[in-house]
Amino acid sequence: MIPGSFDYHRPATVQEAARLVASLGEDARVVAGGHSLIPMMKLRMAAPAHLIDLQGVEGLAGIAVSGGEVRIGAMTTQHMLIEDAALAQAAPLVREAALQIADPQVRYMGTIGGNLANGDPGNDMPGLMQCLDAAFTLVGPEGARQVRAREFYFGAYDTARAEDEILSEIAFSGHAGAGYAYEKQKRKIGDYATAAAAVLLRMEGGRCAAASVAMTNLADRPIFSQAAADALVGSPLDAAALDAAVAAMQGDIAPGADTRGPVEFKRHVAGVMLRRAVARAASRA
């Protein structure tokens, strides 16, 4: 499989990268780890005339944890997320999810920024970042702006990022003290989720005091389900509350049938994932 020809650019700063993106226009694609884009280029489903490689951009990879606040550069790989001790302390949910993405080789190359910016509904990080209520920094010719993860995704490959913007940083608050779980059903290592659930919750006096629920690969975008969280809050996480949360979540998702199964199956698996995630999060709260 031979991809189409392109000119290769390796800018050294994010400003230079943004200028290239702006001047080369829609013939250009930004590449991070390349593990979504390159397979598409090999199939000639993508054929950019210019490839702008972000690997040389200074300061775009790295994890900073300070006062419970987490900032992650867009070029930080899944492998780096897994290996970072401070991140594992502040937001262990991220490590738990990153370990369930793809396989070791892909995790050495695949980046959090690529996973988030691509807008593939199968990607795990978008739902995870909605669960964490993260904010994304987008750098464009006019400067930088922030967009919340919960407002970033419009549909498959359709996001709030403009063509001439580059996702540079992800920021969220750590969840120390909260119960957490990322439950993902997949057919095999390396596959996208049939269904996945990200859950954070806090318990007080045997009752759920706060909750956040997001689902992956169950619509054309990640699904942050406020209704599912509302069904959990105030309850002792008993069977009635879990049933209500699953029903609320199922009201928010809209899975399509594909090789991972028919719609009814996916809705069923989504419920199983949410129940497991809540149970495991509660056991850690």
């Binding site: 490689d53 080789q105 050495y108």
Partner: peptide, 15 residues
Amino acid sequence: GRSVKACTMFVAQAN
């Protein structure tokens, strides 16, 4: 220091 799949990498990236 990373295991990578050489089928999913352009030589330009490996430069």
